[in-house]
Write a protein that binds this DNA or RNA. Structure first.
Lengths: 99, 99
DNA sequence: TTTGAGTGTAAGCGATGGCATACAATTCAG
DNA sequence: CTGAATTGTATGCCATCGCTTACACTCAAA
């Protein structure tokens, strides 16, 4: 249930849209509550990649959506975790970026 | 563990910084892996509110951090959930914005 | 102390975001 | 079907982002 991963601006957009509709708000109403323009809500819901992080977080807060961390791999917080592991992890992450 | 809430750009910044250090990377190394400037990483870690959403998500992905939803209140997805409840929720959220 | 890596800050520039306004397209009640 | 509400798109302006370059600050190792 809480396992929906947020990977892209489009994910955020879909999330916002779904929640907005679930609350019975239209774009204009949400916009005024968040303090942005209706156009901005519209574009963000469509996955605008360059959207302002702070405004997005405010929008989520307004919709009572709480983001949290779903740790994928943990790190031995003990001693030096240097190169080898990390590069593999990061390469995998990079590939996942734009398939 | 997975309950750390993400509310503000500063939260994102702290998250990125902690994870970067846990992975033994410096700002420059992370920047080049993400494909942004070192300066940008620096500012985001300090909580830059206007940061580019897409770049932030790419940074999180590079660090293998997965965001997910922690639903606060659910909505009777049945019929119209209109004004009363919502406004209270939203007002509270607004107040939380800039105290 | 000195040296160096890592980090924080500044100035200027090109690119882009967010805005208002206006107008199509779509959806939905009547 | 008609008309209103909601959503999508276009244009232009101004503010701000992200970049490069450059330099100061901190701190740990030599």
């Amino acid at each position: 249930m809480a396992g929906i991963p947020i990977r892209s601006p489009a994910d955020i957009g879909a999330l916002i849209r779904d929640r907005r509709k679930a609350l019975g708000l239209d774009q204009a109403a949400l916009a005024s509550k968040v303090g942005v323009s209706r156009l901005w809500i519209n574009q963000v819901e469509q996955g605008k990649p360059g959207a302002n992080l702070g405004l997005v977080l405010r929008t989520l807060a307004t919709l009572d959506i709480a983001l949290s961390i779903a740790p994928q791999k943990d790190v031995k917080s003990d001693d030096a975790v240097t190169a080898p592991d990390i590069d593999a992890v990061i390469d995998a992450a990079r590939e996942r970026r734009e398939p």
